[in-house]
């Protein structure tokens, strides 16, 4: 009985929790059905970034190269500044194929973390479930297997400025974008909230 009581309290606590950053959201009516992530959407472009990883106090860098090969089909390569390939993978819809991975990176936790990040970063068409607003942005919510992806589109310039990946109660990953024209992200920061991992991407021409 006592256990049942505790369980109820836990359940109530859990369900009443919401992610802090969504508290000022106001539900609005869906005016469109889907949103298109504009970054990485042009197959004629090579998306090349200087990448910097901060992992548990250590940093390392390299080049991140992304190319759209077809709709919902991207090639992702991570190489050192010298050009040696460390990781080469492809994402087709939700399916990852690893073409090459250096032994040092070939660890389940690394692969799974990167898979999740790139899946969110590169998903082009978002058939969202709800639309919200706050003072700065229109936010599209996509329910993704007990997780939520919130796409923040700035009211000021209609640019995608953030993707928040969260559970019902916790922020998991925040993607922040800076763009000049709304089509090419100049700077991207992928900030993991549940592990000490921050990925900074700076576009190079």
């Amino acid at each position: 009985m006592r256990f049942l009581g505790i369980s109820f309290i836990v359940i109530i606590l859990l369900t009443s929790c919401t992610v802090a950053s969504t508290k000022d959201f106001v539900v609005v009516e869906n005016t469109v059905e889907k949103y298109k992530n504009p970054y990485f959407a042009d197959s004629s472009k090579d998306y090349v970034y200087k990448a910097n990883f901060e992992v548990y106090g250590r940093t390392f860098g390299g080049l991140l190269i992304i190319k759209k090969l077809a709709t919902e089909h991207h090639r992702i390569v991570f190489a050192t500044e010298f050009g040696s390939k460390m990781m080469d993978m492809e994402l087709i819809n939700d399916v990852f194929t690893i073409n090459f991975i250096a032994d040092d990176l070939n660890k389940k936790i690394v692969i799974n973390t990167l898979k999740k990040d790139f899946k969110i970063l590169l998903q082009e068409e978002i058939r969202f479930d709800k639309t919200y607003q706050n003072t700065e942005a229109t936010i599209f919510q996509l329910v993704d297997n007990k997780r939520f992806n919130y796409y923040y589109v700035s009211k000021k310039n209609q640019q995608l400025v953030r993707i928040l990946h969260a559970s019902k109660s916790k922020e998991k990953i925040i993607f922040n974008f800076e763009s000049k024209d709304g089509k090419m992200a100049e700077n991207i920061i992928i900030d993991h909230k549940n592990i000490k991992l921050k990925i900074k991407l700076k576009r190079i021409d």
Binding site: S44, K45, D46, V48, L63, I65, K67, L69, R75, V77, A79, G83, I204
Partner: peptide, 10 residues
């Protein structure tokens, strides 16, 4: 850096 899938070398 030449990769077969890229439009231009880096």
């Amino acid at each position: 850096k030449h990769m077969e899938f890229l439009s231009n070398d880096i």
